[in-house]
Write a protein that binds this DNA or RNA. Structure first.
Lengths: 222, 222
DNA sequence: TGTGACAATATTGTTCACAATCAGATCCAT
DNA sequence: ATGGATCTGATTGTGAACAATATTGTCACA
């Protein structure tokens, strides 16, 4: 292997876009960081042309910000917008939860309940990483079970924009103790095949997420 | 003026993307139509490079479909996906309606009521174009009044994908007679500052839109 | 010491030529 | 005729060279 930093040489623009997106998601590229085309080209073993169109695509996705003749940077999503994103996600994930409740098979119910007990165990053990993983798994599972691909794609895009705030949240002490019952309520409603309740539980959960984000932002400013 | 078809020479990729998007929206470019880079370049007075990145951006937006070495075409959204889009729009526009109901000023209420009476008059007069315009105005006004820019942007993108089905709908005979009361119910709920009812009315309206799309598709297949 | 003009450098924007690929046409052997 | 191989024209993909612009550094002068 030639260089350690180069994950794999990306041949086309889409591949470069994927790599940059992943890097942002992983926190390797932080908000407001400048994205110099030549550097990215070398880093990912692609031509500058590919990097250029990748940056264009990421700009459309809202992950990257571009200024004429001044280059691209990782877009910094302001708190206000992050709250908007959570609100939209609440509407969409509520839709997904309701659909999942309608379509759920018995096997899928078992999977959901397992995720629930894993999360309980994680809180019990004080294992934040495990809890965070359970959280991600629960949300993505419900989205998948909904069979609503348009909603899934939209949620994905929105999540990609607001990465930064996700991190903050799990660092907040006592957060899991508050959100665990919300998660369990969602699981119960879905497994009971109650679409209305599932949607409401999901909405309430994400509203609480929004509130937590707001509070953690307040405290970091003060 | 050199050529009649050239609306205005587009200087950068974003401008070209805007032009192509408009052309698709206006029905000048129909689904599955091939988009040859050289042709577009000449048509809009841009270089092929600009057209290329414009097509990349439109692909991310889901308006255009690209196949390796075979070029781009206007993406044809299958019925199934169109219904998904309406379902997602229902969730988002319901959110917007609820927010609009909470934030509504008295002046804004007057505007909404005026749109309502215009639509009534249009149905009375059998003026389909005026009704369609009222419909667009009502939806976009509510979205604007919600102050939810993330939702607004998301809805915009989804609408752009499903243009084709909008046209069909207004051609359906008796459609306006069915949807008018739905629209009026939305207006009433928002003006009464009842977020829950406004959201429900909007959801029901868009569910009925989805059903109408499904029916009109069935009949066009049979 | 500060400030403005100017030069040097870094970076992005644009175009173009050429390579790669594909769809359809043509031709030939069976 | 038919089926396959090959050729051809059209179109897309790629990279590099050049132009335009912004940023940084330098220096004289007040």
């Amino acid at each position: 292997m030639a260089t350690a930093t180069r994950a794999s040489s990306a041949v086309n623009a889409t591949a470069v876009a994927d790599q940059i997106r992943s890097a942002i998601f992983a926190g390797e590229l932080v908000p407001n960081q400048r994205l110099v085309e030549a550097d990215l080209a070398e880093m990912y073993g692609a031509s500058r042309g590919h990097v250029r169109t990748a940056l264009s695509e990421l700009t459309v996705e809202g992950v990257v910000e571009r200024i004429q003749n001044r280059g691209a940077r990782v877009r910094s999503v302001p708190l206000e917008e992050a709250l908007e994103i959570v609100e939209v996600r609440a509407a969409l994930e509520a839709l997904c939860a309701a659909r999942a409740a309608r379509r759920l098979t018995d096997e899928e119910a078992l999977v959901l309940r397992r995720i629930g007990s894993d999360m309980e165990a994680a809180v019990e053990a004080g294992d934040q990483a495990a809890y965070a993983q359970g959280n991600t798994e629960l949300h993505s599972t419900l989205i998948r079970l909904s069979g609503q691909q348009t909603a899934a794609a939209t949620i994905d895009r929105l999540r990609a924009q607001a990465v930064r705030f996700q991190y903050r949240l799990f660092a907040k002490p006592g957060r899991s103790r508050q959100s665990l019952p919300e998660h369990l309520a969602i699981i119960e409603a879905v497994c009971a095949r109650e679409p209305e309740n599932a949607a409401r539980a999901m909405r309430e959960h994400l509203m609480s997420v929004g509130q937590a984000i707001e509070e953690s932002a307040d405290s970091s400013i003060a």
